[in-house]
Design a protein around this nucleic acid. Structure first.
Lengths: 201, 201
DNA sequence: CCTTATGTGATACGATCGTATCATAAAACC
DNA sequence: GGTTTTATGATACGATCGTATCACATAAGG
């Protein structure tokens, strides 16, 4: 046989080509031939490693989700305060650099398709925000226990608000309707709104 | 010649077929033939009324924007309070009924494509939210002049927050991740947060 | 060393796509 | 009433698509 090749590496190489096409030209430009050309391999190879186009789409998304998870984990602050941790988490949802911008584009492209595709919906929704609201709400409760927060807040709803705020600005930032600085300032404004003013960052 | 036909009516009929396909199966299923079949006319007719596919896409969006504008205008409350007016405006952004759900799907489909299509971007962005933030901010200033709002608010940022909150919940409601009641409750929570508690609805 | 399993290229098939062309029925115009 | 214009159908062309098939080179296993 020819040189035993690392399959998972080849699959990643092809998936990355798909990511580039999906982010720059949209999911509908993702054809077996286009992906092959972008990856610099023959069409047959794409068939070999991802039987069919549907499988290619689903598995390339799974690979991206895994990729993103690692990327986000590596960004989590070490000894940061709860406020800072939530801030990093919220800003992590925004397309502020090239990589997160590409992730946003990819997930948006898959997301719109998932609305009418039950199979895809599982893959998109499951790995999307599994209880992110609960995580933020718990962090807020931790801050409240430390008396860092203002009174009279509904922490579950504040968590939901903060997260919806971030994803609500996603498209605007992507299109340049809102600048990144603007988006960050709005996140900070809402964090200041929730925290006591005298509390440390 | 054959019976002189109302062109704008025929164009609307074809555009409506496109809307249905775009909302139910996605923009990439919008082909001249599919639209013709959905509209119950021959492919040639679609060519006749919208020369090319690109034009069809752009002009069908323009027609939908006009359609939505009328629909939203008709929903504006008459003698409602500022708080109620803002509430209607915010809820109007959410896919809470079949028509607004279809509008959301259509604009989402066009939006993701517009990110990488400069020509389309103009048509999508221009008619999207032309200064909606300013409108809400002005309404908030009106309410503040009536001493209805809490102290210490940055009204521009509150307006931006409210709007981002609504669009941030759009996709969740669309996918059934969040119920409509949930979304409405979160909007109301944030309105209560901004208004003085004793103020009337 | 020889067989066998593995990786890759070339190519072909049928479907669908956007668009162009040709034909023609029928109402409007002089 | 003949002629011109308008609306519509039928169909054809070339491109691209997903997928299947066949061939074949090469390295691993005995």
């Amino acid at each position: 046989m020819p040189k035993r090749v690392d399959h998972s590496l080849r699959r990643l190489q092809i998936a990355e080509a798909l990511w580039r096409i999906a982010a720059s030209r949209g999911l509908e430009e993702v054809s077996m031939r286009q992906v092959a050309a972008e990856a610099g391999v023959s069409t047959r190879l794409v068939q070999y490693y991802f039987e069919t186009r549907d499988r290619l789409l689903v598995e390339a998304l799974a690979l991206r989700n895994e990729y993103d998870r690692k990327r986000i984990e590596s960004r989590l602050p070490e000894g940061a305060s709860l406020k800072e941790a939530i801030r990093v988490l919220l800003l992590g949802l925004l397309p502020l650099d090239d990589e997160s911008r590409q992730s946003t584009l990819i997930h948006l492209a898959y997301g719109i398709r998932a609305v009418n595709d039950r199979l895809l919906a599982e893959h998109v929704t499951n790995h999307a925000k599994p209880g992110l609201e609960d995580i933020v709400a718990d962090m807020l409760r931790g801050a409240q226990a430390g008396a860092q927060l203002r009174d009279g807040l509904d922490l579950d709803r504040e968590a939901a608000t903060l997260l919806a705020l971030s994803s609500g600005m996603t498209y605007d930032v992507l299109m340049g309707i809102r600048t990144a600085d603007d988006a960050i300032a709005l996140v900070d404004y809402n964090l200041r709104r929730v925290w006591r003013s005298e509390s440390a960052t």
